[in-house]
C-alpha cells in the first residue's frame, strides 16, 4: 500500500466550547474516492474546510503528501505563513454547497481567472483548458453568460470546472447538491461521476445522496460526534452496517429518500 496522501492524526477542532473533531484520525490514499456521511453537525464538512485551510484546528497533526499543515517553525497548529498556506492550497480544490461563483465575472472568466493569476498560465492556454472543461460539464454555450443568468445546477457545474482548472490533486465536494432543486441534482451528480473516473484525482465528498455515494465511492465513512464511527466499502456500510448509530442513520435517510 502506498503512503497516504492525506493523514489526520489526533486532530482536535473546537468552536468555542463545542468540540467538532475529537482526536480525529483519518487517512486517504492517492486517487481514492471517499464519501463522508453522517448527521449534520457531526464534523464532516469541517474535515473538508480544514483541508482547504478555511478553518484552523487546535491540536494534532495533518499532512498532505510531504507537506504538514503546521509550518516547521510556526507557532502552534496552523499559525503558518501565508506562503505556506498557499503552497498547501496548490494541491486542493473545493466545490461549495452554495457554488460561490464570482458574480461580476463571466463563466469563462470565473474559470480562467485563477489559472492566469495564480498559476501564471498564458491566457490562451488557460482559455483552451477552460473550454475543454466547459465541454466536460456540458456548458460550452454558456461561456459568456454571467452566473446570475444560470440555473443552480449550471452554476455548480461551472464551479466544478473552475476548481478543476487549477489541476488539484485533491478535490473536495461540500454537499454540492444540497442547495439545488431536486430536478437539477442529476446533472451535477453526472459531472461528479465523470470526474470519479479520473484515476489520479483524490476525491472527498460530503453528501446526503446515498445511492450516488454507493455508486462512486471506494470507501464510505460514517461520522458521529466528531469521529468516524464506522467505515468500509460502500457495499458493506450500506448493506450490513455494524454500529447501531450507522444503522439508525441509514434507516432514517433511506426511508426519507424512498
Amino acid at each position: 500500500m502506498n503512503p497516504p496522501l492525506i493523514r489526520f492524526t489526533d486532530v482536535n477542532k473546537r468552536f468555542g466550547p463545542l468540540t467538532v473533531l475529537d482526536r480525529f484520525n483519518f487517512a486517504v490514499q492517492p486517487g481514492e474516492k471517499v464519501t463522508l456521511i453522517g448527521p449534520s453537525g457531526s464534523g464532516k464538512s469541517t474535515v473538508l474546510r480544514i483541508l482547504m485551510t478555511l478553518e484552523p484546528f487546535q491540536e494534532g497533526t495533518l499532512t498532505l503528501g510531504d507537506l504538514s499543515y503546521h509550518e516547521p517553525n510556526g507557532r502552534g497548529p496552523f499559525m503558518a505563513s501565508d506562503k505556506h498556506l498557499r503552497d498547501l492550497r496548490k494541491n486542493v480544490g473545493m466545490v461549495f454547497q452554495s457554488f460561490n461563483l464570482f458574480p461580476h465575472m463571466s463563466v469563462l472568466r470565473n474559470i480562467v481567472e485563477a489559472p492566469i493569476a495564480v498559476l501564471d498560465m498564458r491566457r490562451d492556454a488557460a482559455e483552451a483548458r477552460a473550454l475543454e472543461l466547459l465541454r466536460l460539464v456540458g456548458l460550452l454555450d454558456k461561456r459568456d453568460q454571467f452566473p446570475s443568468q444560470l440555473s443552480g445546477g449550471q452554476q455548480q457545474r461551472v464551479a466544478i470546472a473552475r476548481a478543476m482548472a487549477m489541476r488539484p490533486r485533491v478535490l473536495l465536494f461540500d454537499e454540492p447538491t444540497s442547495a439545488l432543486d431536486p430536478q437539477l441534482v442529476g446533472e451535477v451528480l453526472g459531472v461528479i461521476r465523470t470526474l470519479a473516473h479520473e484515476h489520479d484525482l483524490t476525491m472527498l465528498l460530503v453528501t446526503h445522496e446515498m445511492r450516488f455515494a454507493r455508486e462512486i465511492s471506494d470507501r464510505v465513512c460514517f461520522f458521529a460526534a466528531g469521529r468516524i464511527v464506522e467505515q468500509g466499502t460502500p457495499e458493506r456500510i450500506f448493506s450490513s452496517p455494524e454500529q447501531p448509530r450507522t444503522q439508525e442513520f441509514l434507516k432514517s435517510v433511506l426511508t426519507g429518500q424512498g
Partner: peptide, 12 residues
C-alpha cells in the same frame, strides 16, 4: 463565502 471561494482557488 466569496472570500472562501477565492482562497480555495489560491488567490493571494
Amino acid at each position: 463565502v466569496q472570500i472562501e471561494a477565492a482562497r480555495a482557488l489560491n488567490f493571494s
